[in-house]
């Protein structure tokens, strides 16, 4: 970060952006720029990285496409637009998750691509996107024998392992699209609370379930204390499938043990209690 004026590059296509990034190893992509803006300091000028590749002219990155099974969102689409377009068909819990991210003027500045790519701070949407099996399309330039070619390649990476997978990609790799599967879940919940007060990071719980005739066909639960990562227990989720609702005392005991296991390494004790409260709340809600 510096106070000097940055070099602003404005590519017109993804390929042009990739080529620019390959040429300029220090350049950073600028979608909504929120990650940099939050650290831009005070005063008349913003402290920004030296070279910016601004993606606002690339139309492809702002497109939203809905098919029968998926919602394909261009990485430059801001969260407010996703909420607006997706009214009525976004998976349950998604609207709440978007609304809880920030107030509307800030949501208008946060791009979904930037939200996912941010490494320093966990994006509040990530646990839910992970539950929903969302995938990220990343484009990059292919290499042959250590040489960067101008032939673009792409990969679709599940959100769950995105940051690990992304570290193996070339530095010019760019998130171009996020695909969210639709119409799988008929119940869902997103909770963001601050059990340790506003000075501490929030606790986030996401749940998604498919319930048919009071039987839990499929369920997924994700927790995060926004510090140590996103936690899921796939074994628990698999074992809960097929259980009748409301859950029996034995099921509840199993759930309670699983939650204790998941939260065992969490730093703040209040988040552990919040996790159990949230799970209880989720299961009492899906009965209704």
């Amino acid at each position: 970060m510096q106070s000097r004026p940055p070099r602003v590059l404005m590519p017109n296509s993804v390929h042009e952006a990739l080529s620019m990034a390959a040429r300029e190893p220090d350049a950073v992509y600028w979608a909504g720029g929120m990650a940099f803006k939050q650290q831009s300091g005070h005063g008349a000028v913003m402290k920004l990285p030296g070279t910016l590749i601004v993606l606002s002219r690339i139309e492809e990155l702002a497109r939203v496409l809905r098919t029968e099974r998926t919602l394909d969102i261009g990485s430059m689409t801001n969260l407010e637009r996703i909420a607006e377009i997706g009214r009525g068909f976004l998976p349950p819990g998604m609207q709440e998750a978007i609304a809880s991210t920030a107030v509307r003027p800030v949501r208008c500045m946060i791009s979904i691509g930037g939200h996912i790519a941010e490494k320093k701070k966990l994006g509040y949407l990530l646990p839910l996107l992970q539950l929903l099996d969302a995938k990220v399309e990343v484009r990059f330039l292919r290499t042959r024998r250590g040489r960067v070619l101008s032939i673009p390649g792409n990969r679709k990476i599940p959100i769950a392992g995105f940051h690990d997978a992304a570290s193996g990609l070339p530095h010019e790799a760019l998130i171009t699209r996020v695909s969210i599967p639709l119409h799988i879940w008929n119940a869902g919940q997103f909770i963001k609370v601050y059990p340790g007060g506003r000075d501490n990071p929030p606790f986030i719980f996401c749940g998604a379930a498919r319930v048919e005739k009071k039987v839990l066909m499929e369920v997924r639960l994700a927790f995060t204390d926004a510090q140590t990562g996103i936690f899921r227990d796939t074994e628990l989720e698999a074992s809960m499938a097929g259980r009748g609702l409301p859950l029996s005392n034995k099921d509840l005991q199993q759930l309670s043990n699983a939650v204790s296991r998941i939260t065992a390494n969490w730093i703040q004790p209040f988040n552990k209690a919040a996790a159990w409260d949230a799970v209880c709340g989720f299961f009492s809600r899906i009965i209704l």
Binding site: V8, G33, M34, K37, M46, L48, L52, V54, S56, E80, R104, P105, V106, C108, M109
Partner: peptide, 13 residues
């Protein structure tokens, strides 16, 4: 037509 905070926008935007 979208509300945004001007203090969070750089001039080039």
């Amino acid at each position: 037509k979208n509300p945004v905070y001007a203090c969070l926008m750089a001039a080039f935007e």
